[in-house]
Design a protein around this nucleic acid. Sequence first.
DNA 1: GTTTACTTGATTGGATACAATGAAAAGGAC
DNA 2: GTCCTTTTCATTGTATCCAATCAAGTAAAC
Lengths: 244, 244
Amino acid sequence: MNSKENSADGPSQKRRHGYTEQEITRRLIEAIFEQRLPPGERITEAKLAEIFGVSRTVVRASMGKLSEIGVFKKTPNLGYTIAAPSRAEARMMLDVRKMIEPGMVHSIALTRSAEDLERLNHHIATEEAARNAGDRSTLVRLTGEFHLKLAEISGNVYLVHILTQLQVLTCLAILVHAESETGCPRDEHSSIVRAIAVGDGEKAAAKMAHHLSHIADELQLDRPRPEPSLESALQWLGGLGRAS
Amino acid sequence: MNSKENSADGPSQKRRHGYTEQEITRRLIEAIFEQRLPPGERITEAKLAEIFGVSRTVVRASMGKLSEIGVFKKTPNLGYTIAAPSRAEARMMLDVRKMIEPGMVHSIALTRSAEDLERLNHHIATEEAARNAGDRSTLVRLTGEFHLKLAEISGNVYLVHILTQLQVLTCLAILVHAESETGCPRDEHSSIVRAIAVGDGEKAAAKMAHHLSHIADELQLDRPRPEPSLESALQWLGGLGRAS
DNA sequence: GTTTACTTGATTGGATACAATGAAAAGGAC
DNA sequence: GTCCTTTTCATTGTATCCAATCAAGTAAAC
Protein backbone atom coordinates (compact mmCIF):
# COMPACT_ATOMS: atom_id res chain seq x y z
CA MET A 1 0.00 0.00 0.00
CA ASN A 2 2.50 2.54 -1.18
CA SER A 3 -0.07 5.15 -2.03
CA LYS A 4 1.64 7.93 -0.16
CA GLU A 5 1.87 10.80 -2.54
CA ASN A 6 0.70 12.08 0.77
CA SER A 7 4.15 11.93 2.32
CA ALA A 8 5.42 14.45 -0.19
CA ASP A 9 2.91 17.18 0.39
CA GLY A 10 4.75 18.90 3.16
CA PRO A 11 4.72 18.18 6.86
CA SER A 12 2.22 20.60 8.25
CA GLN A 13 0.36 21.50 5.09
CA LYS A 14 -3.22 20.78 5.82
CA ARG A 15 -4.99 18.65 3.22
CA ARG A 16 -8.48 19.95 2.67
CA HIS A 17 -9.68 16.40 2.28
CA GLY A 18 -8.05 13.11 2.94
CA TYR A 19 -9.32 10.12 1.08
CA THR A 20 -13.05 9.90 0.97
CA GLU A 21 -14.91 6.87 2.18
CA GLN A 22 -15.74 5.70 -1.33
CA GLU A 23 -12.16 6.02 -2.49
CA ILE A 24 -11.02 3.97 0.45
CA THR A 25 -13.61 1.31 -0.26
CA ARG A 26 -12.61 1.20 -3.90
CA ARG A 27 -8.95 0.87 -3.05
CA LEU A 28 -9.57 -1.89 -0.56
CA ILE A 29 -11.55 -3.85 -3.13
CA GLU A 30 -8.81 -3.25 -5.67
CA ALA A 31 -6.24 -4.48 -3.19
CA ILE A 32 -8.22 -7.67 -2.70
CA PHE A 33 -8.49 -8.25 -6.44
CA GLU A 34 -4.76 -7.83 -6.73
CA GLN A 35 -4.14 -10.11 -3.81
CA ARG A 36 -2.41 -7.57 -1.64
CA LEU A 37 -4.99 -8.26 1.06
CA PRO A 38 -5.04 -12.03 1.51
CA PRO A 39 -8.08 -13.82 2.95
CA GLY A 40 -7.90 -14.28 6.69
CA GLU A 41 -5.62 -11.27 7.21
CA ARG A 42 -6.36 -9.31 10.33
CA ILE A 43 -6.87 -5.60 9.97
CA THR A 44 -7.66 -2.80 12.40
CA GLU A 45 -9.35 0.54 12.02
CA ALA A 46 -6.38 2.40 13.43
CA LYS A 47 -3.98 0.80 11.00
CA LEU A 48 -6.04 1.61 7.95
CA ALA A 49 -6.65 5.12 9.22
CA GLU A 50 -2.93 5.67 9.47
CA ILE A 51 -2.29 4.22 6.03
CA PHE A 52 -4.83 6.48 4.37
CA GLY A 53 -3.96 9.49 6.49
CA VAL A 54 -7.44 10.02 7.86
CA SER A 55 -9.14 9.50 11.16
CA ARG A 56 -10.78 6.27 12.20
CA THR A 57 -14.17 7.79 11.48
CA VAL A 58 -13.80 7.54 7.74
CA VAL A 59 -12.23 4.12 7.46
CA ARG A 60 -14.78 2.90 9.94
CA ALA A 61 -17.62 3.71 7.58
CA SER A 62 -15.84 1.99 4.74
CA MET A 63 -15.02 -1.10 6.78
CA GLY A 64 -18.59 -1.20 8.03
CA LYS A 65 -19.94 -1.39 4.51
CA LEU A 66 -17.36 -3.93 3.45
CA SER A 67 -18.35 -6.01 6.47
CA GLU A 68 -22.00 -5.65 5.58
CA ILE A 69 -21.48 -7.28 2.21
CA GLY A 70 -19.25 -9.97 3.66
CA VAL A 71 -15.86 -8.87 2.39
CA PHE A 72 -14.65 -8.30 5.93
CA LYS A 73 -15.59 -10.50 8.81
CA LYS A 74 -16.26 -8.40 11.86
CA THR A 75 -16.47 -9.70 15.40
CA PRO A 76 -17.87 -7.06 17.75
CA ASN A 77 -15.38 -5.35 20.05
CA LEU A 78 -12.60 -7.43 18.63
CA GLY A 79 -11.74 -6.59 15.09
CA TYR A 80 -11.87 -7.34 11.44
CA THR A 81 -10.37 -9.92 9.15
CA ILE A 82 -10.49 -10.25 5.41
CA ALA A 83 -13.15 -12.85 4.72
CA ALA A 84 -12.04 -16.35 3.90
CA PRO A 85 -15.23 -17.86 2.51
CA SER A 86 -15.93 -21.47 3.37
CA ARG A 87 -16.68 -23.96 0.62
CA ALA A 88 -20.34 -23.82 1.55
CA GLU A 89 -20.32 -20.04 1.19
CA ALA A 90 -18.46 -20.28 -2.10
CA ARG A 91 -21.07 -22.64 -3.41
CA MET A 92 -23.84 -20.30 -2.31
CA MET A 93 -22.37 -17.25 -4.01
CA LEU A 94 -21.85 -19.19 -7.21
CA ASP A 95 -25.41 -20.50 -7.00
CA VAL A 96 -26.63 -16.93 -6.98
CA ARG A 97 -24.39 -15.99 -9.84
CA LYS A 98 -25.73 -18.93 -11.81
CA MET A 99 -29.19 -17.54 -11.28
CA ILE A 100 -28.20 -14.06 -12.41
CA GLU A 101 -25.50 -14.07 -15.04
CA PRO A 102 -26.94 -16.40 -17.69
CA GLY A 103 -30.08 -14.29 -17.76
CA MET A 104 -27.95 -11.20 -17.88
CA VAL A 105 -25.96 -12.22 -20.95
CA HIS A 106 -29.14 -13.48 -22.58
CA SER A 107 -30.56 -10.02 -22.25
CA ILE A 108 -27.34 -8.40 -23.41
CA ALA A 109 -27.18 -10.57 -26.52
CA LEU A 110 -30.46 -9.09 -27.68
CA THR A 111 -29.64 -5.46 -27.03
CA ARG A 112 -25.88 -5.08 -27.43
CA SER A 113 -24.51 -2.25 -29.53
CA ALA A 114 -21.42 -2.23 -31.69
CA GLU A 115 -19.69 -0.19 -29.07
CA ASP A 116 -20.49 -2.76 -26.40
CA LEU A 117 -18.87 -5.50 -28.47
CA GLU A 118 -15.89 -3.27 -29.01
CA ARG A 119 -15.44 -2.86 -25.27
CA LEU A 120 -15.80 -6.55 -24.60
CA ASN A 121 -13.35 -7.59 -27.27
CA HIS A 122 -10.88 -5.03 -26.08
CA HIS A 123 -11.18 -6.33 -22.56
CA ILE A 124 -10.58 -9.90 -23.67
CA ALA A 125 -7.51 -8.82 -25.59
CA THR A 126 -6.21 -7.20 -22.41
CA GLU A 127 -6.88 -10.40 -20.52
CA GLU A 128 -4.92 -12.38 -23.05
CA ALA A 129 -2.02 -9.99 -22.87
CA ALA A 130 -1.84 -10.35 -19.10
CA ARG A 131 -2.12 -14.12 -19.40
CA ASN A 132 0.70 -14.31 -21.90
CA ALA A 133 2.83 -11.96 -19.85
CA GLY A 134 2.37 -14.19 -16.82
CA ASP A 135 1.04 -11.27 -14.82
CA ARG A 136 -1.10 -13.33 -12.55
CA SER A 137 -2.44 -10.69 -10.18
CA THR A 138 -3.51 -8.45 -13.07
CA LEU A 139 -5.08 -11.44 -14.76
CA VAL A 140 -7.14 -12.30 -11.71
CA ARG A 141 -8.37 -8.73 -11.53
CA LEU A 142 -9.20 -8.57 -15.22
CA THR A 143 -11.05 -11.87 -15.41
CA GLY A 144 -13.12 -10.72 -12.47
CA GLU A 145 -13.79 -7.36 -14.05
CA PHE A 146 -15.03 -9.04 -17.22
CA HIS A 147 -18.17 -10.05 -15.41
CA LEU A 148 -18.59 -6.55 -14.04
CA LYS A 149 -18.20 -5.08 -17.52
CA LEU A 150 -21.07 -7.26 -18.64
CA ALA A 151 -23.18 -5.92 -15.81
CA GLU A 152 -22.33 -2.37 -16.84
CA ILE A 153 -23.22 -3.10 -20.41
CA SER A 154 -26.58 -4.44 -19.31
CA GLY A 155 -27.24 -0.91 -18.11
CA ASN A 156 -28.81 -2.19 -14.93
CA VAL A 157 -27.44 -0.38 -11.90
CA TYR A 158 -28.65 -3.04 -9.51
CA LEU A 159 -26.87 -5.76 -11.42
CA VAL A 160 -23.67 -3.77 -11.26
CA HIS A 161 -24.04 -3.38 -7.55
CA ILE A 162 -24.92 -6.98 -6.80
CA LEU A 163 -22.31 -8.50 -9.05
CA THR A 164 -19.59 -6.23 -7.72
CA GLN A 165 -20.21 -7.65 -4.28
CA LEU A 166 -20.41 -11.24 -5.48
CA GLN A 167 -17.34 -10.84 -7.64
CA VAL A 168 -15.14 -9.69 -4.78
CA LEU A 169 -16.37 -12.52 -2.62
CA THR A 170 -15.81 -15.03 -5.39
CA CYS A 171 -12.29 -13.75 -5.80
CA LEU A 172 -11.63 -14.39 -2.11
CA ALA A 173 -13.16 -17.85 -2.37
CA ILE A 174 -10.91 -18.66 -5.30
CA LEU A 175 -7.86 -17.52 -3.40
CA VAL A 176 -8.79 -19.75 -0.49
CA HIS A 177 -9.94 -22.85 -2.25
CA ALA A 178 -8.84 -23.09 -5.85
CA GLU A 179 -5.72 -24.90 -6.88
CA SER A 180 -4.93 -22.87 -9.98
CA GLU A 181 -5.32 -19.25 -9.09
CA THR A 182 -5.69 -18.11 -12.65
CA GLY A 183 -9.12 -16.62 -12.25
CA CYS A 184 -11.59 -17.62 -14.93
CA PRO A 185 -10.53 -20.57 -17.10
CA ARG A 186 -8.96 -20.22 -20.54
CA ASP A 187 -11.02 -18.58 -23.25
CA GLU A 188 -14.53 -19.21 -22.05
CA HIS A 189 -14.99 -15.47 -21.87
CA SER A 190 -14.39 -15.08 -25.58
CA SER A 191 -16.89 -17.79 -26.46
CA ILE A 192 -19.49 -15.96 -24.41
CA VAL A 193 -18.72 -12.74 -26.24
CA ARG A 194 -18.95 -14.54 -29.55
CA ALA A 195 -22.45 -15.74 -28.74
CA ILE A 196 -23.39 -12.22 -27.70
CA ALA A 197 -21.93 -10.86 -30.92
CA VAL A 198 -24.17 -13.01 -33.12
CA GLY A 199 -27.17 -12.20 -30.94
CA ASP A 200 -27.70 -15.78 -29.77
CA GLY A 201 -29.07 -15.20 -26.29
CA GLU A 202 -29.70 -18.85 -25.54
CA LYS A 203 -26.18 -19.83 -26.42
CA ALA A 204 -24.65 -16.97 -24.47
CA ALA A 205 -26.66 -17.96 -21.41
CA ALA A 206 -25.64 -21.58 -21.76
CA LYS A 207 -21.99 -20.66 -22.14
CA MET A 208 -22.15 -18.47 -19.08
CA ALA A 209 -23.82 -21.22 -17.08
CA HIS A 210 -21.07 -23.62 -18.06
CA HIS A 211 -18.46 -21.06 -17.28
CA LEU A 212 -19.76 -20.55 -13.76
CA SER A 213 -20.03 -24.29 -13.27
CA HIS A 214 -16.39 -24.64 -14.19
CA ILE A 215 -15.43 -22.09 -11.59
CA ALA A 216 -17.53 -23.96 -9.05
CA ASP A 217 -15.86 -27.20 -10.04
CA GLU A 218 -12.45 -25.78 -9.39
CA LEU A 219 -13.50 -24.77 -5.92
CA GLN A 220 -15.06 -28.05 -4.90
CA LEU A 221 -12.96 -30.76 -6.41
CA ASP A 222 -9.40 -29.61 -6.07
CA ARG A 223 -8.51 -30.17 -2.46
CA PRO A 224 -8.94 -33.63 -1.00
CA ARG A 225 -10.27 -32.61 2.41
CA PRO A 226 -13.89 -31.58 2.18
CA GLU A 227 -13.67 -28.83 4.76
CA PRO A 228 -10.77 -28.02 7.09
CA SER A 229 -13.14 -26.93 9.80
CA LEU A 230 -12.37 -25.86 13.30
CA GLU A 231 -14.13 -28.97 14.49
CA SER A 232 -11.80 -31.33 12.74
CA ALA A 233 -8.81 -29.29 13.86
CA LEU A 234 -9.88 -29.61 17.47
CA GLN A 235 -10.46 -33.30 17.05
CA TRP A 236 -6.98 -33.64 15.68
CA LEU A 237 -5.49 -31.72 18.57
CA GLY A 238 -7.46 -33.85 21.00
CA GLY A 239 -6.07 -37.02 19.48
CA LEU A 240 -2.58 -35.59 19.69
CA GLY A 241 -3.07 -34.74 23.32
CA ARG A 242 -4.16 -38.20 24.19
CA ALA A 243 -1.25 -39.72 22.31
CA SER A 244 1.50 -37.78 24.03
CA MET B 1 -43.02 8.07 12.87
CA ASN B 2 -44.91 6.85 15.86
CA SER B 3 -42.52 4.09 16.70
CA LYS B 4 -42.07 5.09 20.29
CA GLU B 5 -42.75 2.02 22.31
CA ASN B 6 -39.57 3.56 23.51
CA SER B 7 -41.49 5.78 25.83
CA ALA B 8 -42.79 2.71 27.60
CA ASP B 9 -39.57 0.97 28.42
CA GLY B 10 -38.86 2.57 31.73
CA PRO B 11 -38.62 6.26 32.46
CA SER B 12 -35.16 7.18 33.62
CA GLN B 13 -33.64 3.75 33.58
CA LYS B 14 -30.41 4.19 31.79
CA ARG B 15 -30.11 1.93 28.80
CA ARG B 16 -26.61 0.60 28.61
CA HIS B 17 -26.88 1.02 24.92
CA GLY B 18 -29.35 2.90 22.85
CA TYR B 19 -30.52 1.28 19.68
CA THR B 20 -27.81 -0.43 17.77
CA GLU B 21 -27.12 0.38 14.15
CA GLN B 22 -28.71 -2.83 12.92
CA GLU B 23 -31.84 -2.32 14.94
CA ILE B 24 -32.20 1.16 13.52
CA THR B 25 -31.71 -0.11 9.99
CA ARG B 26 -34.27 -2.84 10.55
CA ARG B 27 -36.79 -0.39 11.95
CA LEU B 28 -36.31 2.04 9.10
CA ILE B 29 -36.91 -0.73 6.59
CA GLU B 30 -39.94 -1.83 8.55
CA ALA B 31 -41.24 1.71 8.57
CA ILE B 32 -40.90 1.85 4.81
CA PHE B 33 -42.74 -1.43 4.39
CA GLU B 34 -45.55 -0.10 6.53
CA GLN B 35 -45.62 3.17 4.66
CA ARG B 36 -44.75 5.37 7.58
CA LEU B 37 -41.80 6.69 5.58
CA PRO B 38 -43.21 7.75 2.23
CA PRO B 39 -40.98 7.96 -0.86
CA GLY B 40 -39.54 11.42 -1.38
CA GLU B 41 -39.68 12.34 2.30
CA ARG B 42 -36.74 14.39 3.48
CA ILE B 43 -34.92 13.15 6.54
CA THR B 44 -31.92 14.39 8.50
CA GLU B 45 -29.37 12.66 10.67
CA ALA B 46 -30.13 14.86 13.64
CA LYS B 47 -33.83 14.15 13.48
CA LEU B 48 -33.39 10.41 13.38
CA ALA B 49 -30.80 10.57 16.13
CA GLU B 50 -33.27 12.34 18.33
CA ILE B 51 -36.05 9.89 17.54
CA PHE B 52 -33.94 6.89 18.45
CA GLY B 53 -32.27 8.59 21.39
CA VAL B 54 -28.74 8.13 20.16
CA SER B 55 -26.07 10.35 18.71
CA ARG B 56 -25.70 11.08 15.04
CA THR B 57 -22.82 8.63 14.86
CA VAL B 58 -25.04 5.57 14.97
CA VAL B 59 -27.84 6.72 12.71
CA ARG B 60 -25.25 7.99 10.30
CA ALA B 61 -23.86 4.50 9.81
CA SER B 62 -27.33 3.15 9.27
CA MET B 63 -28.29 5.87 6.84
CA GLY B 64 -25.03 5.40 5.00
CA LYS B 65 -25.77 1.77 4.38
CA LEU B 66 -29.35 2.45 3.41
CA SER B 67 -28.06 5.04 0.96
CA GLU B 68 -25.55 2.56 -0.39
CA ILE B 69 -28.28 0.15 -1.40
CA GLY B 70 -30.46 2.90 -2.80
CA VAL B 71 -33.16 3.11 -0.16
CA PHE B 72 -32.13 6.65 0.69
CA LYS B 73 -31.00 9.16 -1.83
CA LYS B 74 -28.08 11.12 -0.45
CA THR B 75 -26.77 14.37 -1.85
CA PRO B 76 -23.43 15.29 -0.30
CA ASN B 77 -23.44 18.08 2.26
CA LEU B 78 -27.15 18.49 1.83
CA GLY B 79 -29.18 15.62 3.11
CA TYR B 80 -31.18 12.51 2.56
CA THR B 81 -34.56 11.67 1.12
CA ILE B 82 -36.40 8.38 0.98
CA ALA B 83 -35.86 7.07 -2.51
CA ALA B 84 -38.66 7.48 -5.03
CA PRO B 85 -37.58 5.09 -7.78
CA SER B 86 -38.26 6.14 -11.34
CA ARG B 87 -40.11 3.81 -13.66
CA ALA B 88 -36.83 2.96 -15.35
CA GLU B 89 -35.34 2.00 -12.00
CA ALA B 90 -38.41 -0.01 -11.10
CA ARG B 91 -38.10 -1.93 -14.32
CA MET B 92 -34.43 -2.62 -13.64
CA MET B 93 -35.01 -3.95 -10.16
CA LEU B 94 -37.79 -6.20 -11.38
CA ASP B 95 -35.58 -7.41 -14.22
CA VAL B 96 -33.04 -8.53 -11.67
CA ARG B 97 -35.68 -10.19 -9.57
CA LYS B 98 -36.91 -12.03 -12.65
CA MET B 99 -33.41 -13.37 -13.10
CA ILE B 100 -33.15 -14.50 -9.50
CA GLU B 101 -36.44 -15.59 -8.04
CA PRO B 102 -37.65 -18.16 -10.57
CA GLY B 103 -34.36 -20.00 -10.21
CA MET B 104 -34.64 -19.66 -6.47
CA VAL B 105 -38.06 -21.29 -6.20
CA HIS B 106 -37.00 -23.93 -8.68
CA SER B 107 -34.21 -24.87 -6.34
CA ILE B 108 -36.48 -24.72 -3.31
CA ALA B 109 -39.03 -27.01 -4.91
CA LEU B 110 -36.44 -29.75 -5.07
CA THR B 111 -35.13 -29.43 -1.54
CA ARG B 112 -37.98 -28.14 0.60
CA SER B 113 -38.77 -29.86 3.89
CA ALA B 114 -42.12 -30.37 5.54
CA GLU B 115 -41.26 -27.63 7.95
CA ASP B 116 -40.54 -25.22 5.10
CA LEU B 117 -43.97 -25.85 3.63
CA GLU B 118 -45.49 -25.36 7.03
CA ARG B 119 -43.87 -21.94 7.32
CA LEU B 120 -44.95 -20.89 3.86
CA ASN B 121 -48.54 -21.98 4.32
CA HIS B 122 -48.69 -20.26 7.65
CA HIS B 123 -47.37 -17.07 6.10
CA ILE B 124 -49.96 -17.18 3.33
CA ALA B 125 -52.70 -17.67 5.89
CA THR B 126 -51.48 -14.58 7.69
CA GLU B 127 -51.50 -12.68 4.42
CA GLU B 128 -55.09 -13.70 3.80
CA ALA B 129 -56.10 -12.64 7.27
CA ALA B 130 -54.64 -9.19 6.76
CA ARG B 131 -56.27 -8.96 3.35
CA ASN B 132 -59.68 -9.86 4.71
CA ALA B 133 -59.25 -7.50 7.64
CA GLY B 134 -58.50 -4.68 5.22
CA ASP B 135 -55.20 -3.99 7.00
CA ARG B 136 -53.45 -2.60 4.00
CA SER B 137 -50.13 -1.57 5.51
CA THR B 138 -49.66 -4.94 7.17
CA LEU B 139 -50.62 -6.64 3.94
CA VAL B 140 -48.00 -4.75 1.97
CA ARG B 141 -45.38 -5.73 4.50
CA LEU B 142 -46.42 -9.37 4.54
CA THR B 143 -46.60 -9.81 0.79
CA GLY B 144 -43.13 -8.36 0.58
CA GLU B 145 -41.84 -10.61 3.32
CA PHE B 146 -43.16 -13.68 1.50
CA HIS B 147 -40.37 -13.31 -1.01
CA LEU B 148 -37.84 -12.89 1.76
CA LYS B 149 -39.11 -16.01 3.49
CA LEU B 150 -38.45 -17.91 0.29
CA ALA B 151 -34.91 -16.60 0.27
CA GLU B 152 -34.44 -17.72 3.86
CA ILE B 153 -35.79 -21.15 3.06
CA SER B 154 -33.32 -21.44 0.22
CA GLY B 155 -30.67 -21.28 2.91
CA ASN B 156 -28.53 -18.97 0.81
CA VAL B 157 -27.34 -16.00 2.82
CA TYR B 158 -26.47 -14.00 -0.26
CA LEU B 159 -29.95 -14.43 -1.65
CA VAL B 160 -31.42 -13.18 1.59
CA HIS B 161 -29.21 -10.16 1.48
CA ILE B 162 -29.81 -9.29 -2.14
CA LEU B 163 -33.53 -9.85 -2.08
CA THR B 164 -33.95 -7.85 1.09
CA GLN B 165 -32.48 -4.88 -0.72
CA LEU B 166 -34.51 -5.40 -3.86
CA GLN B 167 -37.69 -6.00 -1.92
CA VAL B 168 -37.49 -2.71 -0.08
CA LEU B 169 -36.78 -0.87 -3.28
CA THR B 170 -39.64 -2.61 -5.03
CA CYS B 171 -41.94 -1.60 -2.23
CA LEU B 172 -40.96 2.02 -2.72
CA ALA B 173 -41.47 1.72 -6.46
CA ILE B 174 -44.94 0.30 -5.92
CA LEU B 175 -45.83 3.14 -3.59
CA VAL B 176 -44.73 5.67 -6.18
CA HIS B 177 -46.10 4.14 -9.34
CA ALA B 178 -48.74 1.50 -8.75
CA GLU B 179 -52.42 2.30 -8.76
CA SER B 180 -53.58 -0.43 -6.40
CA GLU B 181 -51.22 -0.43 -3.46
CA THR B 182 -52.15 -3.90 -2.37
CA GLY B 183 -48.70 -5.38 -2.69
CA CYS B 184 -48.54 -8.65 -4.55
CA PRO B 185 -51.69 -9.57 -6.48
CA ARG B 186 -54.37 -11.97 -5.19
CA ASP B 187 -53.33 -15.54 -4.50
CA GLU B 188 -50.39 -15.96 -6.81
CA HIS B 189 -48.29 -16.64 -3.78
CA SER B 190 -50.32 -19.68 -2.87
CA SER B 191 -50.07 -21.12 -6.37
CA ILE B 192 -46.29 -20.81 -6.15
CA VAL B 193 -46.29 -22.60 -2.83
CA ARG B 194 -48.50 -25.31 -4.26
CA ALA B 195 -46.00 -25.96 -7.04
CA ILE B 196 -43.22 -26.06 -4.47
CA ALA B 197 -45.23 -28.47 -2.35
CA VAL B 198 -45.53 -31.04 -5.12
CA GLY B 199 -41.88 -30.62 -6.01
CA ASP B 200 -42.53 -29.22 -9.47
CA GLY B 201 -39.59 -26.87 -9.88
CA GLU B 202 -40.39 -25.88 -13.44
CA LYS B 203 -43.92 -24.91 -12.57
CA ALA B 204 -42.87 -22.99 -9.47
CA ALA B 205 -40.33 -21.06 -11.52
CA ALA B 206 -42.90 -20.29 -14.20
CA LYS B 207 -45.43 -19.14 -11.63
CA MET B 208 -42.88 -16.88 -10.01
CA ALA B 209 -41.89 -15.43 -13.37
CA HIS B 210 -45.52 -14.65 -14.10
CA HIS B 211 -45.98 -13.21 -10.66
CA LEU B 212 -43.10 -10.82 -11.10
CA SER B 213 -44.35 -9.86 -14.55
CA HIS B 214 -47.69 -8.98 -13.06
CA ILE B 215 -46.04 -6.70 -10.56
CA ALA B 216 -44.09 -5.08 -13.39
CA ASP B 217 -47.28 -4.67 -15.37
CA GLU B 218 -48.92 -2.80 -12.57
CA LEU B 219 -46.02 -0.40 -12.43
CA GLN B 220 -45.84 0.35 -16.12
CA LEU B 221 -49.37 0.34 -17.39
CA ASP B 222 -51.43 2.02 -14.73
CA ARG B 223 -50.65 5.66 -15.06
CA PRO B 224 -51.24 7.30 -18.42
CA ARG B 225 -48.18 9.53 -18.46
CA PRO B 226 -45.08 7.48 -19.29
CA GLU B 227 -42.71 9.48 -17.11
CA PRO B 228 -43.37 12.84 -15.48
CA SER B 229 -39.76 13.85 -15.84
CA LEU B 230 -38.22 17.18 -15.15
CA GLU B 231 -37.31 17.43 -18.80
CA SER B 232 -40.86 17.17 -20.06
CA ALA B 233 -42.02 19.55 -17.36
CA LEU B 234 -39.52 22.17 -18.49
CA GLN B 235 -40.46 21.66 -22.10
CA TRP B 236 -44.07 22.19 -21.18
CA LEU B 237 -43.25 25.35 -19.28
CA GLY B 238 -41.23 26.56 -22.22
CA GLY B 239 -44.15 26.08 -24.58
CA LEU B 240 -46.38 27.89 -22.18
CA GLY B 241 -43.98 30.79 -22.03
CA ARG B 242 -43.91 31.23 -25.77
CA ALA B 243 -47.67 31.03 -25.99
CA SER B 244 -48.41 33.70 -23.41
C1' DG C 1 0.45 -27.73 39.63
C1' DT C 2 -4.10 -26.15 38.86
C1' DT C 3 -7.56 -23.07 39.28
C1' DT C 4 -9.43 -18.68 40.16
C1' DA C 5 -9.47 -13.72 40.35
C1' DC C 6 -7.42 -9.65 38.85
C1' DT C 7 -4.94 -6.55 35.95
C1' DT C 8 -3.47 -4.98 31.63
C1' DG C 9 -3.51 -4.00 26.79
C1' DA C 10 -5.49 -3.58 22.45
C1' DT C 11 -9.57 -2.59 19.86
C1' DT C 12 -14.00 -1.30 18.87
C1' DG C 13 -18.37 1.59 20.23
C1' DG C 14 -20.37 5.98 20.76
C1' DA C 15 -20.78 11.00 21.81
C1' DT C 16 -19.35 15.51 21.22
C1' DA C 17 -16.98 19.47 19.17
C1' DC C 18 -15.79 21.79 15.34
C1' DA C 19 -14.89 22.50 10.27
C1' DA C 20 -16.82 22.54 5.57
C1' DT C 21 -20.38 23.05 2.49
C1' DG C 22 -24.10 24.89 -0.02
C1' DA C 23 -28.75 27.01 -0.04
C1' DA C 24 -31.46 30.66 1.06
C1' DA C 25 -32.12 35.06 2.94
C1' DA C 26 -30.49 39.83 3.61
C1' DG C 27 -28.30 43.89 2.08
C1' DG C 28 -26.49 47.25 -1.05
C1' DA C 29 -25.30 49.33 -5.83
C1' DC C 30 -27.05 50.73 -10.05
C1' DG D 1 -36.89 46.66 -9.55
C1' DT D 2 -32.79 43.85 -10.76
C1' DC D 3 -28.44 42.08 -10.13
C1' DC D 4 -24.63 41.12 -7.40
C1' DT D 5 -22.47 40.48 -2.93
C1' DT D 6 -22.62 39.19 1.78
C1' DT D 7 -24.36 37.03 5.65
C1' DT D 8 -26.74 33.59 7.97
C1' DC D 9 -28.39 29.08 8.79
C1' DA D 10 -29.14 24.25 8.45
C1' DT D 11 -26.83 20.10 7.42
C1' DT D 12 -23.33 16.98 6.57
C1' DG D 13 -18.14 15.70 7.13
C1' DT D 14 -14.27 14.69 10.15
C1' DA D 15 -11.46 14.44 14.19
C1' DT D 16 -10.91 13.52 18.85
C1' DC D 17 -12.05 11.99 23.35
C1' DC D 18 -13.62 8.62 26.57
C1' DA D 19 -16.29 4.36 27.70
C1' DA D 20 -17.14 -0.59 26.90
C1' DT D 21 -15.52 -4.96 25.79
C1' DC D 22 -12.86 -8.96 25.42
C1' DA D 23 -8.40 -11.63 25.33
C1' DA D 24 -4.46 -12.71 27.37
C1' DG D 25 -1.33 -12.58 30.67
C1' DT D 26 -0.26 -12.36 35.87
C1' DA D 27 -0.56 -13.17 40.48
C1' DA D 28 -2.53 -15.32 44.35
C1' DA D 29 -4.92 -19.19 46.73
C1' DC D 30 -5.40 -23.82 47.50
